[in-house]
Amino acid sequence: MTQRAEHSTVMDRLALDDLITGYAIAVDDGDWPGYRALFTPDGRADYRSAGGIEGGVEEIAVWLGEMLQHFAIRQHLIVNRRITLAGLDGASGDCATVQADYFNPMRLAGPATEGGGGPTAPNYTCAGRYEFTARRTADGWRLTGVVVHEKWREVWADGE
């Protein structure tokens, strides 16, 4: 591999890492226009393993916006990212897959958290693995798909 090709591969990997980080921040902040902008127009997501839905990015953004209102605090930690770049011939190119584990502590909304004066410790935690697919576009790397594979979740009452 030439030095120029290695540099390009590193830059692609950094851009994909930024894309996945942007995904976590958009979901945690409830930035649904920002969430939509991370995807190609034909992008899809599948949250069924976590009790959600599967569909196009528009449908998913609306659903996430409604469902995540139940959580006053949320924080996605996406780690152990395995990035694979591929082209049609199997060489590094314009398509990518990213496998990444997630740990997601959240706080269920309720009277104690409304107004910002209540508890902030998580009382709902889930974890699993994401499978992201992405494509290089004129606007940079964009997600074409997200599949969630939830492995476990824990919900507890305050004081436990």
Rank of each mutant, 00 (worst) to 15 (best):
R107V: 09
L88S: 15
R81N: 06
N80P: 02
L108G: 05
A72M: 10
A91T: 14
F71W: 10
D94R: 02
G116Q: 04
V79Q: 01
A112P: 00
I83E: 10
G115R: 02
G115W: 11
R81E: 12
A86M: 05
N104R: 00
R107A: 01
E114M: 03
N80Q: 12
A109Y: 03
G90Q: 00
A100V: 01
F71T: 01
L88E: 15
L108H: 11
S92Y: 08
R107L: 10
F71A: 05
G87H: 03
F103R: 12
G110R: 06
G116C: 07
R82L: 08
G87P: 04
G117V: 02
A72P: 06
G87F: 05
P111K: 00
C95V: 11
T84L: 14
D101S: 10
G117Q: 09
V98W: 00
A96Y: 02
N104D: 11
N80I: 00
N80S: 13
A100I: 05
L77G: 13
I78Y: 04
A91V: 03
G116E: 03
A96W: 05
H70L: 15
E114H: 04
P111G: 11
T113P: 02
R81Y: 07
R74Q: 13
H70N: 15
G93D: 01
N80W: 03
G93H: 01
Y102M: 00
D94H: 04
V98N: 10
A91C: 06
Q99I: 00
C95E: 14
G116I: 07
Q69K: 12
G117I: 00
A96L: 07
G93P: 02
A96N: 02
G90Y: 03
A112I: 08
S92E: 15
R107N: 04
G117N: 05
L77I: 15
T84H: 13
M106V: 04
S92W: 05
G115N: 03
Q75N: 12
I73N: 11
Q69M: 12
L77W: 14
N104L: 08
S92N: 14
Q99A: 13
R81L: 12
D89I: 07
G116A: 05
F103S: 11
Y102F: 11
V98G: 08
R107I: 08
A91R: 12
L77T: 13
R82W: 03
F103I: 14
T97I: 09
A109I: 01
Q99L: 14
D89W: 03
G93A: 06
D94E: 15
D94P: 08
I73T: 13
A91W: 02
N80D: 12
P111I: 01
R74M: 12
T84E: 15
